[in-house]
Computed example of a mutant assay.
Amino acid sequence: MTHNQDHRAEAARQWACSTLGVSDAGWAPASADASFRRYFRLQSARGSAIVMDAPPAQEDCGPFLAVAARLQAAGLSVPPVLGQDLDRGFLLLGDLGTHTWLQGMPRAPEAALAWFATATAALVQAQRHIDPAGLPAYDAGLLTRELQLFPDWFVGRHLGRRFTAAESALWDTVCERLLANALAQPRVFVHRDFMPRNLMVSDPNPGILDFQDAVCGPISYDVISLFKDAFLSWPQTLVDQGLAVYWRQARAAGLPVAAALHDFVLQAERMGTQRHLKVLGIFARIRYRDGKPAYLDDAPRFIAYLRARAAVDAQMAPLGALLDQLGLAP
């Protein structure tokens, strides 16, 4: 921890205590994420609260507050905002507890499926009741910038090479097909990182975190993020069952998912491929730019996801050929 971080942590603690009107409080790190944000847990006679430290030079608390209000208005469980100092980048939030779904959900697929049905019901509720107007558009420009993270950071920085002309042609074909798939889908509220690590075991369940990057985008994005997790892999049979549960819930709620389950699953899996390529680039960037190497340890999981799809989806065959050329084994 740098001296500046020490100073910010102490300033955040003093501000939170003053906001709550307490003088004696326990203070400990709660969590950190892939951004510059940090979270602390404040324990006092008034109970437990979470302090978000988001340095204004790197982070903007505005989107967090705006999206939290949308989720709360839709009847979903998010941390209540107890206080804010946007000039310094401090938020005081209600504490949804210490157990994420990543920690708490059962690993047996049959038991996990019931948990997933609860998560997809919450997702359908968000998609049905939140008007995404005014959120950033998950458009061709943003999708393309995300995909470019893979050649720039994972291939260029992590693998230490550039695409050959033949590899560039394969990559261009993959990107064209993934963009067409994403842009053809109906647009809804997209959390953008809807996975067990960002869901809390709480009442009501789940509590939803890390929603500040929400956008208006493809309807399949969040549900495939839930099942093709960054930190936990599930058998494809469970993924297929879970996607079917979501599809039935979405149809019953009147959401504009594809009329045929097979078509929806194909859209979702291709959407997942775009996300996995992006995440590989992000994890490499976090490693080499931000000095956080642990995220890249999960790269084999994403390569396995990509390999599995390239093996069964003819549209993604060029991706399989590219991974071969890059020497990225399953």
Rank of each mutant, 00 (worst) to 15 (best):
Y246S: 05
L71M: 06
M1G: 11
A126T: 01
L170F: 03
Y305A: 08
L296A: 01
A49E: 05
K228D: 07
F40T: 11
F36T: 05
V67E: 04
A112C: 14
Q5F: 13
R88Y: 02
R37F: 06
D298M: 08
A314Q: 14
H7S: 10
P63N: 06
Q14H: 13
A137E: 15
F302E: 08
L306V: 09
L328F: 15
D87E: 10
L82W: 03
L323P: 11
P206T: 08
S31G: 10
H129R: 15
A252T: 14
R309Y: 14
C216K: 10
V257F: 05
D33A: 08
R251F: 00
G26P: 06
H276Y: 12
V174K: 01
Y288N: 02
R145L: 12
W153E: 04
P300F: 13
G242K: 14
L199M: 15
R38C: 06
A250K: 02
A74T: 09
A74F: 02
F302S: 10
S233L: 14
L323E: 10
L209C: 01
P206A: 10
A165W: 06
D152K: 09
G281Q: 01
A74V: 07
Q103K: 10
N198F: 04
L255G: 10
N198S: 12
I208T: 07
A284E: 04
A294I: 08
G254W: 15
R309S: 13
L238H: 12
P29C: 09
A30N: 09
E59R: 01
L209Y: 04
R145N: 13
W247H: 15
A126V: 00
L255W: 10
A112E: 12
G83S: 12
R162C: 07
D53Y: 02
S48N: 15
P196D: 10
P293H: 08
A74E: 10
V239Y: 07
L147R: 07
D139K: 01
R192H: 09
V174I: 03
